[in-house]
Design a protein around this nucleic acid. Structure first.
Length: 386
DNA sequence: ATGTTC
């Protein structure tokens, strides 16, 4: 059966992307280089594939006999938490939402006894990074209030007790400095050669990796709690998934290691694939098809960068002021008081989400459930500018 | 990505 969204690059290298999806040549090159690592069986790029530091982002890698912590990267456990709040969109003004959201950057541990207790509940003091819990971080991390724009599958939508009028909250963050420290210590000791399955070093990484996944989820949970408190609402988790992590799996009869780097696991239930801050997000379900194995049971984790961070400000500052970039084409608000991030995370720097979603649809990997539009995208209230 | 990099 033909599939125009399946690009076979080499024996064990493929990319899930329609011909109209922008894929940087350098990212394909990184994918091919990674495919040649000892023990690597198969690699696949998602439609949001883009170049990373040595290894591509938006990809999954399946290896036998050894695994590669560097492929997971430093933000072990980075992922998305999607919640439905008790707020209804009816009489909300965006300016009021922004004001009530306030500043959620300061360490939660210094906020109050109440928050210290909430943080304590997650038992992360031994990580040494307790101070970062409950704050978003930098880069592409964000928290976004959204509203439903279109429902495609009413039955699935209803079965998850969703309501078109409810404000949704999406939190994208990870293990902050903790995961980074784990990777750095690993690279200092072992470089990039990977770890042999069953070795004591492998066992040590597994336990650190597991702890980083816990930290990342605790972080997303505390960010959501904090936002809900500021908005005087509560929220129920619809889905929380990591998109940077390692797992042991059996694929086509072979037992091995599945590395996901910016790749959402195609698990049952609802999954969220966000666009840039000026674009829609899609609520989807993964489908089990003949291409599931080729796609290494993974989906895109977002739109994917189109431009390198360093080229954003030069390209955009001529066309837009930072203040103009605090509103988007979908009329949402952007809270980002970091001059560099305003440009680096501009919608123009990302692929259009529709090309990414179209690729996954054409490959038969997803079913659409709903589309959401951004209301407020929160990056940082930190120092500087605007 | 990062209580910010050899």
């Amino acid at each position: 059966m033909g599939n125009s969204s399946l690009q076979i690059i080499a024996d064990n290298v493929s990319v899930i992307a329609s011909p109209t999806t922008w894929i940087e040549g350098g990212a394909i090159q990184q994918l091919q280089t990674t495919a040649k690592l000892p023990g690597m069986r198969r690699v696949v790029g998602m439609p949001d594939l883009h170049p990373g530091r040595g290894y591509p982002v938006g990809a999954a890698f399946f290896s036998i006999g050894r695994f590669y912590p560097a492929l997971i990267g430093g933000d072990i456990g980075c992922g998305m938490r999607f919640l439905k709040t008790d707020l209804t969109i009816g009489k909300l003004s965006l300016d009021k939402l922004v004001k009530r959201l306030g500043n959620i950057d300061a360490p939660l541990t210094e906020h109050s006894d109440f928050w210290q207790e909430r943080v304590d509940a997650y038992q992360m003091r031994d990580t040494g990074f307790e101070r970062s819990l409950g704050s978003i971080g930098g880069g592409n991390h964000f928290a976004e209030l959204q509203q439903f724009d279109e429902i495609y599958d009413r039955a699935v939508f209803d079965s998850h007790a969703l309501d078109r009028q409810q404000v949704m909250l999406l939190v994208h963050s990870g293990s902050r400095g903790f995961g980074g420290q784990i990777l750095r210590q690993h690279i200092d000791h072992f470089g990039h050669v990977g770890l042999l399955a069953g070795s004591s070093a492998a066992a040590a990484y597994w336990s650190q990796h597991a702890r980083a996944l816990q930290y990342a989820e605790a972080n997303r949970s505390l960010i959501a709690e904090r936002i809900c408190a500021n908005l005087s609402t509560t929220a129920d988790v619809v889905v929380d998934v990591h998109h940077n992590f390692l797992s042991e799996v059996c694929i086509d009869g072979e037992h091995g290691f599945l590395h996901r780097k910016g790749a959402t696991p195609a698990d049952p239930g609802l999954l969220i694939i966000p666009g840039s801050r000026g674009d829609y997000s899609y609520l989807v379900q993964a489908l089990d098809t003949e291409y599931s194995s080729i796609s290494l049971f993974s989906l895109a984790h977002g739109a994917g960068r189109k431009w390198m961070r360093s080229e954003c400000e030069p390209r955009l500052s001529k066309r837009f002021t930072a203040t103009q970039l605090s509103r988007t084409a979908l009329n949402s608000r952007v809270v980002c008081h970091d001059k560099a991030l305003i440009f680096e995370e501009a919608p123009e720097a990302y692929k259009p989400i529709d090309t990414v979603i179209h690729s996954l649809l054409e490959a038969g990997l997803i079913r659409l459930v709903a589309k959401l539009k951004p209301l407020v995208s929160y990056k940082t209230s930190g120092a500087c500018c605007v």
